[in-house]
Simulated scan of single mutants.
Amino acid sequence: MKIEKVLNNNVVMCRNELNQEIVAMGKGLAFQRKAGDIIDDSKIEKTFILQKHGISEKIAKLLEDTSELYLNISSKILDYAKTQLPYKLDDYLYVALTDHLSFAISRHKQGIQLKNALLWEIRKYYKTEFQIALNALDMIEKETGIRLDEDEAASIALHLVNGQLSGDNMAAAIQITQMVNDILNIVKYHFKMELDETSLNYERFLTHLRFFGMRYMRKEKSMDSIDDFFHEQIKHKYSDAYKCTQKIATYLSKEFGWEISKEEEVYLTVHIHRVTNRHLLNQKAE
């Protein structure tokens, strides 16, 4: 493979036989090398493919001040995450996670510990991502000898959640988490009940809310393909769940300026009915 750009003595950008942009890493891989030179394949220790245009420039800038060790750790974490998650992760995660790890480890060495205010919510609502992040702490410790705490696992999990959003705005992942938490609280207070977090219906509802929030962050418009007759049927059949949906709609309008569609109302109402119905039936049977 031919070198396109030397990032440092150990990291280069190049292209494979499919013309895909690749980051190649290896000790001394680029020593006394320049763009246009052929790589010694025997020195390559790690490669990963970049699908998104412009990421290589951001990695190059990042590596001016950051050790490629953190890029290597990020790559291992993301390789593992891709085997565990059902969705595609954005290439920007290589940059965001590398930068985060460098900063987190630097803080740790200085004895500075930052608490993640969303630790409880992340552990609860993003169970798969949080478990991946806990395993990531093991990888980090193996490579650096430093054990980061669960607050950092929560931050890594948020990066994975944010990796679905195709961008570098961590605030979006935090906002989605807060939105999900607020909507679940509206449901709990409306029905005056705790939800069964072990149930399949709860997992389905949680998944729906997460993607619901992502659609808002991506500014995706619902096609509103639900006809008025069906909307009215759902409204009357699940009247209490629909009243709860209206409270959620008011919250979304007030907090985000988001006017949800009739289609979104229907899906929310059906999910709310499913997640609360078994509990309500049990109450009546008592």
Rank of each mutant, 00 (worst) to 15 (best):
I3H: 04
K5D: 12
A24M: 02
G28T: 07
F31V: 14
D37N: 06
I38D: 15
I38E: 15
I44E: 03
I44A: 11
L50T: 00
H53P: 08
G54I: 08
G54Q: 07
I55A: 02
L63T: 06
T66N: 03
S67C: 12
E68L: 08
E68W: 14
N72Q: 14
S74R: 02
K76Q: 11
K76N: 11
L78H: 10
A81S: 11
A81T: 05
D90S: 14
L97S: 05
H100A: 10
L101K: 01
Q110H: 08
Q110A: 13
G111P: 00
G111A: 10
L119G: 02
W120E: 15
Y126W: 09
M139W: 00
I140S: 03
E141R: 04
R147L: 08
L148D: 03
E150S: 10
E150M: 07
E152M: 09
S155V: 13
L158V: 13
G163H: 05
L165T: 02
S166R: 14
M170D: 09
I174E: 14
Q175C: 06
M179S: 07
K188F: 04
Y202Q: 05
L206S: 07
L209F: 05
L209S: 03
F211C: 00
K221C: 01
S225V: 14
D228M: 09
K235P: 01
Y242I: 13
C244K: 08
Q246N: 12
T250W: 04
E263P: 00
V266A: 12
H273I: 11
R278P: 09
Q283W: 07
